[in-house]
Design a protein around this nucleic acid. Sequence first.
DNA 1: CTACAATACATACACCGTGTATGTATAGGC
DNA 2: GCCTATACATACACGGTGTATGTATTGTAG
Lengths: 186, 186
Amino acid sequence: MARATQEQSEETARTVLITAQELFAEYGYEAVGLEQVAAGAGVTRGAVYHHFRSKKGLFEAVLDEAQSQVSAAITQAAPGEGWDAIEEGCKAFLRASISPGVRRIMLVDAPAVLGWTTWRRSDARHSARLLEEGLESVIGPEEDRSAIAALLSGAMNEAAMWIAEGGDIASAERALSQILRSLRSP
Amino acid sequence: MARATQEQSEETARTVLITAQELFAEYGYEAVGLEQVAAGAGVTRGAVYHHFRSKKGLFEAVLDEAQSQVSAAITQAAPGEGWDAIEEGCKAFLRASISPGVRRIMLVDAPAVLGWTTWRRSDARHSARLLEEGLESVIGPEEDRSAIAALLSGAMNEAAMWIAEGGDIASAERALSQILRSLRSP
DNA sequence: CTACAATACATACACCGTGTATGTATAGGC
DNA sequence: GCCTATACATACACGGTGTATGTATTGTAG
């Protein structure tokens, strides 16, 4: 296998990935051509297709990157367990999801580009997993746990977009606290 | 103006619209070409472009149709006011949104195709408006009302997809009731 | 150290889908 | 009964994805 070149290669792939994340985040998936991505990364489309199977493949990698950034922010802000950790985690999710590099990719384009099921599976490996695990540690294996997690997850996603489009973050956090209260004391 | 032909023309436009709704709903916006739509409607792409400005324009019309179906179902199922009406309205939203002719168009593709802001504006003329008005009639002009409506709306959308992909509708409705309880008695 | 094979890209090309320009027939007002 | 506008069909231009091919360089085996 290659050695010195391998690092070079990985760096190229990384550059393409970051460039794509920026462009997808700003203009949306369909409005961005791979020519733009390649040019922005200082390569040609050939390199892009070499590292990523297709435009969708590139997007999947970008999504994974964005979701990793978000879930990292969550675990850092709310490492513990219990209801307070969940609430803090949700708030961290909001703050992280507002980031322009994440928002549109993760919350708007991903479901449409990859399909809702694939998107959800991908989410289940990141922030949605944290939410479900947090809930399980608090309310146990209640039968409606998955449904509750789904509703909460949807509420969080919409809240993030709502904030990003001009909504007040403090107001959203208060609304979130209020909703969580009903789950804390059934 | 034309008379007999005008009706003919409107029927053609309607046929194209319905065909597009079926195809978009089943295969998704980007996977459907206007050639398919035209063929399914028994016309050529020329007719499609005559009645609708562009593929996006056609999609906007389809979305409006789908949202009208949903909001009609809501107002029929929950015509009154008060918390019970809101809860019934939400449940009606779930049942209506699960419909295969609505689901993907309204909940998955619309934000990506039209952009989140446009999508939200469109939603604000249909089910989201009903939700906001219902909330206003119950909790008054509380400052967090918009945030609460956003969270609830997101929760409902996600719940609909969750159900459509195999989740239990009764479970989702219980989770919804639980969340609404926190808002009923602050 | 040399020949070979695989990797990392660039270049060139085919295909499909959107959008637009143009053509044509019919309908309804004057 | 002419004339214009409407309702569509046909034809074409363009952009973007994907794929096939070319090429240089690197790591490796003999």
